[in-house]
């Protein structure tokens, strides 16, 4: 039993290793695609695939219950960032309807040692995060959109990730009799 518990402990990994591995992925994608838009898309797709699995790990570890409004979801997302990236983004800029908010980061561990070359200003370097958020929300029956509105890599003061709630996804009905 105790062995199993240590296995499930949050594994501490040096964040520099993570940052550099992510950097290697992005630079490899730049080589493979040679087109910034395709790289953005690919990062989003990879993030999505990570998100649909990561959410299971998050739920198993935190024992979190279902969210009844977007504010609860926002708190959990904030907590997830703390768990997986070691940062606590601020929750800001709520829309009046309460269906949109921003995650604002002072530091972004993904971009620690990164400078964007001038000709890659359209690259959404951390786009993996958008995909991961979209994927994990989709698994808990929430359709959301995510995008970066500010990025420190592009000279903004903070990095701001916007999240918009679109709709609730319904349970699948069983397949009909053939």
């Amino acid at each position: 039993m105790s062995r199993q518990n240590t296995r499930l402990d949050v594994k501490k990994v040096n964040s520099e290793l993570f940052t550099l591995t992510y950097g290697a992925i992005v630079s490899q994608l730049m080589k493979d695609y040679e087109n910034v838009e395709d790289v953005n898309k690919q990062l989003d797709r990879m993030g999505y695939n990570i998100g649909v699995r990561l959410v299971e790990d998050f739920l198993a570890r935190t024992n979190a219950g279902r969210c009844y409004d977007l504010r609860e979801t926002a708190d959990k997302i904030q907590y997830a960032f703390k768990m997986y990236l070691g940062i606590t983004p601020a929750l800001t800029n709520w829309s009046a309807a309460g269906d949109e908010f921003s995650l604002t980061f002072d530091t972004n561990p993904l971009t620690e040692f990164v400078e964007l070359p001038d000709n890659y200003q359209n690259l959404k370097y951390s786009n993996l995060l958008c995909g991961a958020l979209r994927g994990s929300c989709e698994m808990v029956q929430m359709d959301v959109s995510c995008w970066f509105v500010q990025d420190q890599l592009k000279g903004d003061l903070a990095t701001e990730l916007r999240i918009k709630f679109n709709k609730r996804l319904e349970d699948a009905i069983p397949a009909g009799e053939d």
Binding site: Q4, R7, L8, R53, E56, D57, A60, R61
Partner: peptide
């Protein structure tokens, strides 16, 4: 079972 078997050996 969800936490220790499904998540550990299927999701991961």
């Amino acid at each position: 079972l969800y936490k220790e078997i499904y998540v550990e050996y299927v999701v991961k």
